[in-house]
Design a protein around this nucleic acid. Structure first.
Length: 465
RNA sequence: UCCUCCUUAGCUCAGUUGGUUAGAGCAUUUGACUGUUAAUCAAAGGGUCCCUGGUUCGAGUCCAGGAGGGGGAGCCA
């Protein structure tokens, strides 16, 4: 007898042909049965559903059957048949079973019963074996693929921006230092400061907080580019929407203005959500059933309806006229609070909102100054339940105006000389934005906490696994 | 970092005004059952009540400090 090639469970569940010999390998979710039969629900992660294995106990060694417990890993060879029982259409009548790895039922943490997401976070090394995390991880993959596909199909080039950077130009947040210096006894300068000239790169270096500035350099040569890479923020943020290590997508397009930028953002998001609806329905249906009753209708709504576009100034007026009892006052010039954004998105417009033209003093130095001299051509895309999912802008392409903003904000010119040079040589209008990948996954999956949409979350006081 | 809530069996939780031997469901083990669907039924085993200190005749329960976690806020994607 020669070994039969393993078939993914996903294929078997869609089989049209029966009474054929097949082999499956996977992890046992449940085993139940009686004196003569065992029913094993086997899952290999190829699809959220498991396949039912039927084993007639008379045909197997009793001690081997005992090893088949929730969490164990087995290989099953048998006949694929149409199910005799209710609840599934196909099943495998097992002829041989090999146990690859046991999972002592006394101590294996995952049970047939549901677990809280908080508990699963403590066993992040095992949680991919749950239905929930299988679904999230498959959707995460699908979204990652769809992002590359969208950009590729639309003429963008993927740029690998550096992960170690020598500048904190954007000021997007606290950074993680990268160093090989001895932390206990670092070399010092004459004034007693740490002498980074002796460090690995001969200067202070950090993990990137954004690939945008580098993406701009590439856009001013390849026209349409994007980055998709890990991003690091050393902020002490303890919320369901922040991670210290997350993934960010940053398209940057030469010759685009703010309206083009909004069009791109809206089309991009709709494409991604539609991709999930057409390719991840099994997983979405599971998540809808378990976590959010209106997940599918919410996703369809976003794909079908247009986003509301208005300026920051108009938003402030709406908020002031709303007579809604906000905890924080609404004032032109101050950044909007979460409660203000939520009101606009969830109460007033009841749809995604793109806010533009924020006061220049609350936005980054590289954003293009508007004609009024008071606002910049920024845009934030706000989603229900998530808040800011995209932040972007048209960039300041005028060298002198950019230099003025750099000086106003106290940034050292010598740190961004290379960025300024792009405005000196062949500058042009351009625009781009950053999409938080995990925030997209939050929205698509309906999960409530960002720590549950990345396999191994890094947050303050947590870098386990 | 701020506000707030929580921490009791492997998991999810209950535990009265401070009172004798700390409970339930699920899980686990054993048994019963010829097709189960988170199977069902019966029995059994299972506890550093987060940690440290204090008050008290007596603390899971009250007080102080610490640790960890949830929710909200800020920062942002």
């Amino acid at each position: 007898m020669y070994p039969i090639k393993r078939t993914p469970i996903k294929e078997l569940l869609h089989a049209k042909e029966f009474n054929i010999e097949v082999n499956v390998k996977g992890w046992v979710r449940t085993k139940r049965g009686n004196k003569s039969l065992a029913f094993i629900n086997l899952n290999d992660g190829s699809i959220i559903h498991g396949i039912q294995i039927v084993a007639e106990l008379a045909n197997f060694d009793e001690n081997m059957i005992k090893l088949i417990t929730t969490g164990s890993c087995i290989s099953v060879t048998g006949t694929l048949v149409q199910s005799q029982g209710q609840g599934q259409s196909v099943e495998i009548q097992a002829t041989t079973i090999e146990v690859y790895g046991t999972a002592d039922a006394e101590v294996y943490p995952l049970q047939k019963k549901g677990h809280t997401l908080e508990f699963l976070r403590e066993i992040a090394h095992l949680r991919p074996r749950t239905n929930t995390f299988g679904a999230v991880l498959r959707i995460r993959h699908a979204m990652s693929y769809a992002i590359h596909k969208y950009f590729n199909d639309n003429g963008f080039y993927n740029i690998h921006s550096p992960i170690i950077t020598g500048s904190d130009a954007e000021g997007a947040g606290a950074m993680f230092r990268v160093t090989t210096l001895d932390p206990i006894n670092p070399p010092k300068t004459e004034t007693g400061a740490v002498n980074y000239a002796e460090d690995f790169f001969g200067k202070e270096t950090n993990l990137t907080v954004s690939g945008q500035l580098e993406a701009e350099l590439a856009a001013l040569a390849l026209t349409k580019v994007y980055t998709f890479g890990p991003t690091f923020r050393a902020e002490n943020s303890n919320t369901a929407r922040h991670l210290a290590e997350f993934w960010m997508i940053e398209p940057e397009v030469a010759f685009n203005d703010l309206v083009d930028n909004m069009d791109l953002a809206e089309d991009f998001l709709k494409y991604l959500i539609n991709y999930a609806l057409t390719h991840c329905m099994d997983d979405l249906e599971f998540l809808e059933k378990m976590y959010e009753n209106e997940l599918l209708s919410r996703l369809r709504f976003v794909v079908e309806e247009s986003f509301e576009r208005l300026t920051y100034t108009q938003a402030v007026e709406i908020l002031k006229e709303s007579n809604h009892p906000f905890e924080f006052p609404v004032d032109w010039g101050a950044d909007l609070q979460s409660e203000h954004e939520r009101y606009l998105v969830e109460k007033h417009f009841k749809r995604p909102v793109i806010l533009t033209h924020y006061p220049k003093q609350i936005k980054a130095f590289y954003m293009k100054l508007s004609e009024d001299g008071k606002t910049v051509k920024a845009m934030d895309v706000l989603f229900p339940g998530i808040g800011e999912i995209i932040g972007g802008s048209q960039r300041e392409e005028d060298h002198d105006k950019l230099l003025m903003r750099i000086r106003e904000m106290g940034i050292h010119e010598k740190d961004v000389w290379w960025y300024l040079e792009t405005r000196k040589y062949g500058t042009c209008p351009h625009a781009g934005f950053g999409l938080g990948f995990e925030r997209l996954i939050l929205f698509v999956t309906g999960m409530g906490n960002i720590r549950d949409v990345i396999p191994f979350p890094r947050t303050p006081k947590n870098a386990e696994f």
